[in-house]
Design a protein around this nucleic acid. Structure first.
Lengths: 345, 345
DNA sequence: GCGGGTTGTCGAAGCGCTTCAACAGTACGC
DNA sequence: GCGTACTGTTGAAGCGCTTCGACAACCCGC
């Protein structure tokens, strides 16, 4: 029996330490450390010997000890929202992108739920368990943001709060997305454009992405010499119907409301406006939704993987002391499907 | 400027240490530690003074230091599968249950992807970053299991591999679930029962849950004196149709195949067998799917939250050195909806 | 063949915490 | 008033790692 029992019942195991490796290789512990970190030049022969010992002994540096000594945990926190109504596949895409991004730079990911809120952020950051955090689905007036600012752990937000001062945010460039939709419709000859957006409350809260899309649409329409109107839209059939009735002459429709897409399509069918013959529809929504709609929708997808990847990159840059822009907006990418076509009088 | 810059660029911050707290409260550092852990009796007055200092200074114990000294990280790893075709909502339910369960016992959760596989398990366990691991969606011959066995970190599997020797597994009791379906149908007067199960390959792989359901169904049917047949079923319309045609006289149908549920219902409609007038259908599937089917299906749900909670409980028990059963099977819970009714000749 | 740079390695200090053995102080039974 | 038994607190050791300064050993130009 070589295992020494310990009070906690947790396995101390016969943990191989850096000293064991050093002895086995006939060098100092610090040399092993330098082999591992590459922070000092080590001769090829020594390195080889050390690496061999590491392998034969099965050495894994103790994360706690490392974090204590180096002040780096090599772990980042990911705050998942999981509010009801979130679109799970997209969420997972974000999360997976963050995970693989982190792993590719030797970092692990600690999961944080949103309902821990600011307290969770404070706890995690305070304990030095993580080097930095990524917050997903940040709201305009997110209660965690003030906490984030007073803490001095680097962080990256996915989404845009009311003010990006002192923060680092990544998101799709919704203004450009709106503009891209307009330009696509304009190129097809459409003159009257309507944006069916988020519910009114979202605008009232001054939520960044909804407002930015609207501004992008209006501005692009003005530039292209088109008429455009914007209508908030609740995610219900009745609301979709009403919104559509209020824009009877629009031949180009931009729908920026995942939850309302289906209702809008149903309402159009009800109103006998055929897609794309009578009216062209562009959606700003996950590819998934656009693809399984009937007809498949021309859309600007939310580039979840790209955003997740960028978030990690930005966080790593901050951890390395590099100054990064407060706001990173990703260029939209319009995919043409069957819901848009040239105008037919 | 009070912050001292450090080479890494990572914030050392003006971290409050246990010594700072001790000084502030006029006690020894060890006393503070004992106040926090409760492992020794501390007078009420001292405790109060220490707690006050902790609060005013905003002290958070350094996770790395703690893990180094105590050999406990207070972190568990959660290995998420995310194979294509996984039912995301269920997955998230599992994950959230694990998360909240862990948090309720002061543990954090580190996310591991399945595609890191055995290497990921080894890395995480070896580095002492986590105290134990929970693996979701374990396959019958999961490549991570051997690694798990040779490591000496406690772990809990959600699902059942081929052999549970030396492991701890939690899952729904699929045999009992199958039996419950049979008993429900028997009580309604059905004499001929058919199980539409997983695709053939799943049985060929000797996958635990599929086999267990089938055995449960067959055994319960025998006991109740009913005739029962089992048919594997691909998740396609054609396969569902063919399977149904092969059991023309069955009036009680048990569907244990999330992905095939809709196809089966469509096929029944096509065959002009009305539900529940001509044939009663019980599904073993997430509530979600059962509820949004037409008609709403009587079903035995997969109790994801319960399983997640139990997994954490079991892991904590193991961490405390308590011996736990190798296999924990949760009792099924049949919910009656509109897809089953008394037999009508 | 002697200063002045590199290069490769080492020993020791110290990161912030837990835990152990030790020890004052108080309480109590006799 | 003495031993015995707690109770509450302490100082020191040590967890496994990184990092700093020191220092041999070597190479070079002269």
């Amino acid at each position: 029996m070589t295992t020494t029992s310990n009070p906690s019942g947790r396995a101390r195991g016969n943990v191989v330490t850096i000293t064991d490796v050093a002895k086995h290789a006939g060098v100092a512990a610090s040399t092993v450390s330098y082999v591992l970190s590459g922070k000092r030049t080590i001769s090829a022969t020594t390195r080889a010997r050390v690496m061999a010992s590491i392998r034969t002994l099965g050495f894994h540096p103790h994360a706690g000890a490392r974090s204590l000594a180096s002040n780096k945990a090599n772990v980042i926190a990911l705050a998942l929202p999981l509010r009801p109504g979130m679109h799970l596949p997209i969420l997972m895409q974000f999360a997976m992108a963050v995970l693989t991004g982190a792993r590719s730079v030797e970092h692990d990911v600690l999961l944080l739920t949103a309902d821990e809120g600011a307290a969770g952020v404070r706890r995690i950051a305070g304990s030095a368990l993580v080097d930095g955090l990524i917050l997903m689905d940040v709201e305009t007036h997110d209660p965690r943001v003030p906490t984030l600012l007073e803490l001095d752990r680097p962080s990256v937000l996915i989404g845009l709060p009311a003010s990006a001062d002192g923060l680092t945010c990544v998101d799709l460039d919704f203004a450009a997305a709106g503009a891209a939709c307009v330009q696509h419709l304009a190129a097809l000859g459409h003159q009257e454009i309507a944006l069916l957006g988020a519910p009114q409350v979202v605008y009232d809260r001054d939520t960044g992405f909804a407002r930015r899309t609207r501004d992008g649409v209006m501005e692009a329409a003005r530039t292209a010499g088109l008429t455009a109107v914007a209508r908030p839209c609740e995610p219900t059939y009745a609301a979709a119907l009403e919104a559509l009735r209020s824009v009877p002459h629009a031949t180009g429709l931009i729908v920026h409301n995942e939850a309302a897409v289906d209702h809008v399509l149903t309402a159009l069918r009800e109103l006998d406006r055929r897609v794309p013959d009578d009216v062209s529809v562009v959606a700003i929504c996950p590819d998934e939704i656009a693809e399984r709609a009937t007809p498949a929708l021309t859309s600007v997808p939310i580039p979840a993987s790209e955003v997740g990847r960028r978030a990690v990159e930005l966080l790593m840059a901050k951890l390395d002391g590099v100054t990064v822009p407060n706001v990173t907006l990703l260029a939209p990418n319009l995919t043409v499907r069957s819901s848009t076509g040239p105008i037919t009088h």
